[in-house]
Deep mutational scan, measured.
Amino acid sequence: TFVALYDYESRTETDLSFKKGERLQIVNNTEGDWWLAHSLTTGQTGYIPSNYVAP
């Protein structure tokens, strides 16, 4: 799992909003700078900017 370093507000319907400190499970990280992730807090799935999270 990864932890959010910053808050992120989604800009498209495929993005995932999250708050700093939220735990995220990475589903697919082969898309370059945008990873498909599942929030362990909200249960939602969407794309996140990879530079906003850390292991």
Rank of each mutant, 00 (worst) to 15 (best):
L16V: 06
L24T: 00
G32E: 12
S17F: 04
Q44P: 00
D7Q: 03
K19Q: 08
R23L: 15
V27E: 07
K19M: 08
V27W: 12
G21K: 02
T42G: 04
F18S: 00
S50C: 13
N28V: 10
E9R: 05
V3A: 04
R11T: 14
L36N: 02
V27H: 08
P49D: 07
I48T: 01
W34G: 04
L16N: 02
E13H: 10
T45V: 12
T12L: 12
A4E: 01
G21A: 03
T41S: 12
S50E: 04
V53Y: 04
N28R: 09
N29W: 12
T14R: 14
D15V: 08
T12C: 15
I48N: 00
I26S: 04
A4R: 00
G21D: 06
L40M: 11
Q25W: 13
I48V: 13
T14V: 12
L16P: 04
V3H: 06
Y8H: 06
T1I: 15
P55R: 07
A54L: 08
S17R: 06
L40Y: 08
G46Q: 00
A37F: 02
W34Q: 07
A37D: 00
V27Y: 10
S17D: 05
N51H: 13
E31P: 08
L40W: 07
E13N: 12
L36I: 08
W34R: 14
I26Y: 02
P55E: 11
G21S: 04
V27K: 08
L40H: 07
F18C: 05
N28T: 10
G46V: 00
Y47Q: 04
D33Y: 14
K19R: 11
Y6E: 09
K19N: 06
T41I: 12
K20Q: 10
T30W: 10
I26R: 06
T12N: 14
S39N: 14
A4Y: 00
Y6C: 14
G21N: 06
T42S: 12
N29T: 14
F2H: 09
I48G: 01
E9M: 10
K19H: 09
V53Q: 02
E22R: 00
L16A: 05
A37L: 02
L24M: 10
L24P: 00
A54C: 12
I26A: 08
R23E: 13
R23M: 15
E31D: 15
T30G: 14
W34K: 10
E13T: 11
Y47T: 05
T41K: 12
L40D: 06
D33W: 09
N28E: 11
Y6G: 06
N29Q: 13
R11Q: 14
H38N: 08
L36M: 08
N29E: 11
P49Q: 06
G32I: 11
K20N: 04
K20G: 03
E9T: 12
F18Q: 00
D15K: 08
L36G: 01
N51Y: 11
L24A: 00
Y47N: 05
F2L: 07
S17W: 04
Y8Q: 02
F2M: 11
G21Q: 02
E13Q: 10
Q25F: 15
Y6R: 13
P55T: 08
R23S: 10
S10W: 03
D7V: 01
T14S: 13
S10I: 04
K19I: 07
E22M: 04
S50L: 05
F2E: 01
L16C: 04
F2R: 04
V3Q: 05
T12Q: 11
T42K: 03
A37K: 00
E13S: 12
P55K: 08
L16M: 14
Y6F: 13
A4P: 01
T41L: 13
D33S: 11
E13G: 12
S39A: 04
L40V: 08
R23H: 14
F2Y: 15
S39E: 01
W35H: 03
N29M: 15
D7C: 05
T1M: 14
T14L: 13
E13R: 08
G21Y: 04
T14K: 13
G43L: 06
K19S: 09
K20W: 03
E22H: 08
L5C: 11
N29H: 12
T42L: 03
I26N: 03
Y52H: 12
E22A: 04
R11M: 13
R11F: 11
Y8C: 04
N51T: 11
I48M: 02
G43A: 05
E13C: 13
L16D: 01
A4K: 00
N51R: 10
N29V: 14
S17K: 05
N28D: 15
S10D: 03
V53P: 03
V3M: 08
W35Y: 06
D33K: 09
E9A: 09
Y47G: 02
N51C: 15
K19V: 10
Y6D: 08
L16W: 02
